[in-house]
Nucleic acid binder design. Structure first.
Lengths: 351, 351
DNA sequence: CTGAAAGCGCTAACAA
DNA sequence: TTGTTAGCGCTTTCAG
């Protein structure tokens, strides 16, 4: 049962007949190693199948080769528990893990509760335990000063996904306002004039942006936004149902609804049937997330697709490059394009 | 930018006025520390917000507080890329991350390609880099001798999810044969006698078990299994489509189909329409996975639900406990119950 | 019951 | 261009 002693940098050094440090230089692409020596070392590494220990690198050097992503605990657990899955996490893993792997890094997930007074302690604990080289923040953490201040003070570099505000850290985002505008224009182009909007959770930074895009598109056509068509929401299925029930009871109900999340769009869709509304015959519906459920619903929903994987990959890349070059904690804003997918849930309004 | 020097065990020792080692004992619930001293140390830990560094613990001691899960690369990436999501990964994260967190552990994911000749090198590299305290294997890795031998020789403890075969490592599984039997009996109970089965990928260990459950249930009723009703499959959507097309062309087509994966069930479902078959009117369909898509499809599919989160949690628990107690590499078999969810895709056959 | 010393595998600083 | 020396923060001996 005695674990065959792991091969270390020493073994490689001995095998190649060089010093420990030279091996280290080769591994880290350090300068000042002649080609023949490099080859010898590389041969030894390959022969022995040597892979440096992450823990030792972290302890000895200044790098941990770890990127830590913080996601909001409650919605994430809910998605998993309800077995609905979790598009955000999936796409983050997809974009982030692969990019990290490219550079010999690993990405770790940590769930912290944005509504807990333990938030800072949770974050601090994860940082102390892991000492990541960089941190990726997702909404709503992306704009939580308690976290960003903590990271900044700790001298850590980080990326804020879905945040476009200036400040510490890299902002990697899509244009939520333009996305909402695009979706709204799609409905306007179809001939809709009575368009409602089910808003996102006010806690999330993108919510006002999307609202602006929505109203902007409508007003640009010389129309006005009926305040009653602006329904509150919190991203949940139930909010979608409630919103459509309220909207349908209006004197002049809308002929189209844009919802700020897939769940809410699905809520709207499923509330339509009982109200005697067919989609898209009586009501067009557009979703703000292109999750699997949205694509498989009947009818399949027209939706905006957020570039979550691309944003995460970009974030990881920025962090790793910045760390590699030894830049000071950076910032900057990086806009990534969104997609808009037209499916079966939108059609011209009934005359 | 100078990262505020992290607080270490030394700081705690100084604060509590004890030696470094005493603090370590308290952290690790070691024996031989009087209550008052413990309290003093704990107070210091809380005051300073001290959290031990994972890397240092791994390097100094024998534990890394890391559990590594190996998933098959291709299907995982496909699920993410197609944005279909990945129920296995989601549920593993759910079950595994939480259980690990309970014990101060972390779970890491690694994708390795079961069809690559680099498989062993990939696994070896991950192990060398991370030195996990335990490993979780998912199908088809669970029964890949190249991997299990490697782990065993390395003295590592591991769990094999979805494998019930005896051998090194903990086998944590559900009864696939019983599940197939249960699903088949459901169809038999509805009055079906012409039941087809779209098989799983032959590479996966559970495939023969499921087949046995299927045929066993039918033969137990004194019926015989029409060989033409046994369709090959590989878990993909396309395989489901192909299978139903073949089945529908038979002289006496089946009135019900059990598919060994959600994708194949969906393929069957979607192939039914063009063939003029309504579900469940003309054809009942049962899926072997209860993924989000299956639940949202129209009609929603009757399905077997694998306890993936529970299996992963159990695996993590076994590994952590075993490591904590310093057991020799353990083995044993742990059966977890599955669920069977009846939805709208199954009904009595048309007379 | 508590403390002191050694070392885990690596990198950073310094020599050579 | 290469090698040598300290640690990094912890746990594991082994003393007290």
């Amino acid at each position: 049962m005695q674990k065959k002693r792991a091969i270390t940098i020493k073994d490689v050094a001995a095998e190649a007949g060089v010093s420990l440090q030279t091996v280290s230089r080769v591994i880290n692409k350090g300068p000042n190693v002649t080609a023949p020596v490099q080859d010898r070392v590389r041969a030894a590494i390959d022969k022995l199948g040597y892979v440096p220990s992450l823990a030792a690198r972290r302890l000895g050097g200044s790098r941990s080769y770890l990127i830590l992503a913080f996601n909001d605990e409650r919605p994430t657990l809910e998605g998993w528990q309800s077995r609905r899955g979790n598009d955000w996490v999936d796409q983050m893993l997809y974009g982030g893990m692969l990019k990290c792997a490219e550079h010999g890094y690993r990405m770790l997930f940590e769930l912290v509760d944005s509504h807990s007074d333990q938030l800072e302690a949770q974050v601090r604990a994860a940082l102390s335990a892991l000492h990541p080289d960089g941190v990726i923040l997702t909404p709503p953490h992306s704009e939580d000063d308690r976290i960003t201040d903590l990271l900044h003070q700790g001298g850590l570099i980080f990326a804020r996904l879905g945040s476009h505000r200036e400040g510490e850290g890299f902002a990697v985002y899509m244009d939520d306002e333009a996305a909402a505008r695009r979706a709204t224009e799609h409905l306007l182009d179809l001939g809709h004039t009575r368009i409602a909007y089910v808003q996102g959770h006010p806690e999330y930074a993108m919510s006002p942006d999307r609202l602006r895009g929505f109203t902007g598109a409508i007003e640009a056509r010389g129309l006005t936004v009926d305040p009653a068509y602006l329904q509150p929401g919190d991203f949940t299925y139930e909010a979608g149902i409630a919103a459509l029930n309220t909207l349908a009871a209006l004197e002049t109900p809308p002929s189209a609804v844009l919802a700020s999340s897939d769940e809410m769009a699905l809520g709207v869709l499923h509330a339509a049937g009982p109200l005697g509304l067919s989609v898209p015959g009586d009501l067009s519906v557009v979703s703000f997330d292109d999750t699997p459920t949205v694509r498989m619903s009947v009818p399949a929903l027209t939706a905006i697709r957020q570039p979550i994987a691309a944003m995460t990959a970009k974030a990881a890349e920025l962090l790793i490059e910045s760390k590699t070059r030894g830049d000071p904690p950076g910032n900057g804003r990086f806009l990534l394009p969104f997609d808009f997918v037209v499916r079966a849930s939108t059609a011209p309004p009934r005359r």
